[in-house]
Computed example of a mutant assay.
Amino acid sequence: MNSRTFLLVTSPAIVWFCVFTAGAEPLQNAKPIGDTKNPQVDISSLQQQARQGDAKAEYLLGWSYMTGTGVSQNFVEAAKYYRQAAAQSSPDAEFALGYLYEQGKGVLRDYHQAAAYYTAAAQKGHLTAENNLGSMYEYGRGVHKNIRQAQHWYRMAADHGDVTAQCNLASLYFRGGRVPRNYPQAAEWFRKAADRGYAPAQEDLAWMYFTGTGVPLDYSSAAHWVQMAADQGFARAQLDLAYLYEQGKGVPLNYVKSYMWYKAAASGGEQRAIGRLKGLSAVMTKEQISQANAAAGQLSRSPPKVDGAADSKSIGSSFIGPR
């Protein structure tokens, strides 16, 4: 079977964190949480409440300084207020402080401290802390490497619907090792995240259908899931969807649509799409190329629906094959 690499993405109080691969570096995809429906923060009021020991106010001040909401971004101040709230056992603050220690923002990088704060939050049922703690165990950061513990914490978060944890758990089953390789289980967990609209999981599930790994080989299902991810601006999925249209696998043969999606993938950083465009243009008429360019231009004016989707990676080689 094709060799597949995975992507590590960590998640703070403002960052969702998904891991797909051993040895990869964290990729942040910022998503504020907390009082996001009302981002207007009364800083002076929060400061007054914080001086009175209000843990929620301390956490919100930390969040404000971390995100630069209502104040200038200042990770040192964020860490100070998160620490105050964490001292009162706020799981959100414990999680956020763990992230700051993991990333070395506002504090010296300290994986032991990061793992300790993630553990405190995870034991209180904080989903993303459970996921991040799983990653710490998977890669031996601040704790002894322990794949079984990684599986345990990923499963805790995955069972409660955390899509990144579902992907991380799928990746453990996909790679095998200390956790026995189980492709059907990997497909099941990718499907759970894909069903909730998570583009990387949709691309990974599509690859499994395209190759018949853990699921019956089914080009139509591969096309369905890769289309879902491509529509969200996921460059690898756009590359694969273009290939399906070029080959007529799972979708009708259509060079115009293929060219359009290759153009989108190239714009998203997929270098292989450039070579595919050159080859495809040799068998297309000028009218078809013009039509495809117009469609690609219209597509480029539609921003991706998933933040950072175009920068994310799937579990490895595209439908086209190894790089």
Rank of each mutant, 00 (worst) to 15 (best):
G177H: 09
D231P: 02
P216V: 01
P216N: 06
A222H: 07
G176M: 06
R181Y: 01
A237R: 11
S171L: 10
G177C: 02
P216Q: 03
E203A: 13
A206W: 01
R178V: 12
T211F: 06
A186R: 05
A235D: 10
H224R: 08
R178P: 01
Y173F: 15
Q185W: 03
R181V: 04
Y209A: 01
Q202T: 12
W225A: 00
A194D: 09
M208H: 03
A230E: 04
G214L: 03
Q185D: 08
F210M: 07
R178I: 05
A235I: 12
R181P: 01
A201P: 11
L241W: 06
D204R: 09
V179L: 12
T213Y: 02
W189L: 09
W225H: 07
V215L: 00
Q238K: 06
G214Y: 04
L172H: 07
A186N: 08
Y183R: 12
L241S: 11
H224W: 00
W207H: 04
F174W: 07
D204Q: 14
G197L: 07
A230D: 07
A194M: 10
R196S: 15
V179N: 03
S220T: 12
A229V: 03
G177T: 09
D231M: 11
T213A: 04
S171K: 14
T211M: 10
P184D: 11
A194W: 10
A194V: 12
P180N: 10
G177A: 05
L239V: 03
L241Y: 12
F234C: 04
A206N: 07
V215I: 05
F174D: 13
P180R: 07
Y209C: 07
F190C: 10
F210N: 13
A222Y: 00
L217K: 08
A201I: 14
G177D: 06
D218V: 08
E203L: 12
D195R: 13
Q232T: 08
A237M: 08
Y219N: 01
A229K: 10
D231F: 10
T211D: 03
R236W: 12
W225P: 01
